[in-house]
Computed example of a mutant assay.
Amino acid sequence: MNTNVSDTLKALDNPTRLAILGWLKNPRENFPGQEVDPEQVGVCVSAIQERVGLSQSTVSLYLASLQRARLVTSKRVGPWTYYKRHGENISTYLENLEALI
């Protein structure tokens, strides 16, 4: 199996990580009240943590896993980190997965 596809499947093999990725698809709707434009900058870790209801350290680990799989990107703004989906990489992953099955 393609290593990138395998690594991505591992990152998605968690209901919470999968939910986070799904919520980031419509950040304005799923994370209202952001101080920055969630479409451009992303969603603050604290907003994701509040929605998920888990500790910040757990949410940070989940986001790091999604980032290693190249499904999300992060951006630091002052002391905060914002995450958004990496649409191009998600599309490439889906194409690679389809080629395998």
Rank of each mutant, 00 (worst) to 15 (best):
L24R: 06
N26R: 08
K75E: 06
L94V: 04
G87S: 14
L71F: 02
L100R: 03
R28Y: 02
L24F: 11
Q67V: 01
N96H: 04
N4L: 13
R51C: 03
A99K: 12
Q34M: 14
L100I: 10
C44Q: 14
I48E: 05
T81V: 14
V43T: 12
G33W: 10
V45C: 10
I20N: 06
L54D: 07
N26I: 06
N4E: 08
I48L: 05
L66P: 00
D37M: 15
A19W: 15
L54E: 09
W80C: 09
N96A: 15
P27E: 09
L21R: 07
A69E: 01
K10T: 03
A47S: 15
Q56S: 08
R68L: 06
T3P: 12
C44P: 08
D7S: 09
H86L: 11
V72R: 02
V77L: 15
V41F: 10
N26S: 14
V41L: 10
I20H: 06
S6A: 11
P27I: 14
V59E: 11
S46L: 09
N4R: 15
V5M: 12
Q67W: 00
G42Q: 06
N30G: 08
E29R: 15
L54W: 04
S91V: 12
Q56N: 08
L63D: 00
I101W: 03
V43M: 10
S6F: 07
G42S: 06
S74E: 07
H86M: 12
Y62K: 02
A47E: 12
L94S: 03
W23F: 13
R51H: 07
V5S: 05
Y93G: 02
S91D: 13
L21I: 03
R17T: 00
V52N: 05
E95R: 13
N4V: 08
K10M: 04
S46W: 05
L71R: 04
L9C: 09
D13C: 05
V5Y: 03
G22M: 08
